[in-house]
């Protein structure tokens, strides 16, 4: 076969393009979840919470949370006019079935505070684990490797927010995973999905298009126990100073 100089010059770039695609390999069929693209947190808007307990029920159904234990729960605060420093806090069965009614014209103010794992960036719970069974994943979710956990409960004591418990059957530590099995599939968490008022919003702090950034700029947002320097990533809007 004789290739003229003219043909050779035409074929060379074509061959180069073909070789490029060989080097690149077959393109991915589905867009895969990339941990390095996310930094997960949550926004809780106290002014929107009505204390219906939908989040608590949804969390239990989604994650098979045993009765009497909670990955998320709702507290009702009553700050009365004369004891501002000592609010009364109740959370009957985690607020799963709602709250007892209050008098028509109560003294002081009431509000609901949903609580969950704060997904701390510098979490005290992961630092005390003696075997490396709990950790902050590269996308910011604080997770527990239950196959590796000894059940020593150091982390349960270390969490300043009381978000961990020892699973009564598995005998290992358990807590909110921020519905890691859902958010990695492109869904929101079970609690956010089922919150009727939008008081809970999943937030991806690494996504520049996430409305969380605008919200943090324009609202007075706090985290729980900032003095603990845990790097908590669950942000509370309209949080009363009496909340602990």
């Amino acid at each position: 076969m004789n290739i003229s100089r003219r043909h050779f010059l035409i074929l060379m770039p074509a061959a180069a393009v073909a070789w490029e695609s060989v080097l690149a390999g077959t393109p991915e069929q589905a867009p895969n979840y990339k941990m390095s693209d996310h930094w997960w947190g949550m926004l809780v808007d106290i002014s929107k919470c009505i204390g219906c307990g939908n989040c608590v029920r949804a969390c239990q159904a989604e994650n098979n949370v045993p009765d009497g234990h909670f990955r998320t729960w709702v507290e009702r605060y009553h700050v009365d006019d004369y004891h501002l420093e000592n609010p009364q806090v109740i959370s009957p069965d985690g607020g799963k079935e709602g709250f007892p009614s209050v008098a028509e014209d109560p003294n002081g103010k009431f509000f609901y505070v949903p609580k969950l794992c704060n997904q701390c960036a510098d979490s005290p719970c992961t630092q005390v684990c003696p075997v490396g069974a709990t950790f902050v994943a590269p996308d910011g979710a604080v997770l527990i490797d239950q196959a590796y956990c000894l059940g020593c409960a150091y982390c349960v004591q270390a969490c300043p927010y009381g978000c961990r418990y020892i699973h009564p059957e598995k005998k290992v530590a358990d807590k909110c995973t921020l519905c890691y099995h859902r958010i990695t599939k492109g869904l929101t968490t079970a609690c956010c999905e089922n919150c009727p008022t939008g008081a809970r919003q999943l937030a991806d702090l690494k996504n520049p298009k996430d409305p969380i950034h605008e919200f943090l700029r324009t609202h007075n947002v706090q985290v729980l126990k900032p003095q603990m320097a845990t790097g908590a990533k669950v942000f509370y809007n309209d949080l009363d100073g009496s909340v602990r």
């Binding site: 941990m35 949804a58 490797d145 890691y180 859902r182 599939k185 929101t188 999905e193």
Partner: peptide
């Protein structure tokens, strides 16, 4: 462990 947790089944399909 990250992959194992991510592979858990979901119960709420999402709207």
């Amino acid at each position: 462990a990250i992959g194992e947790i991510a592979a858990l089944p979901i119960h709420y399909a999402g709207h």
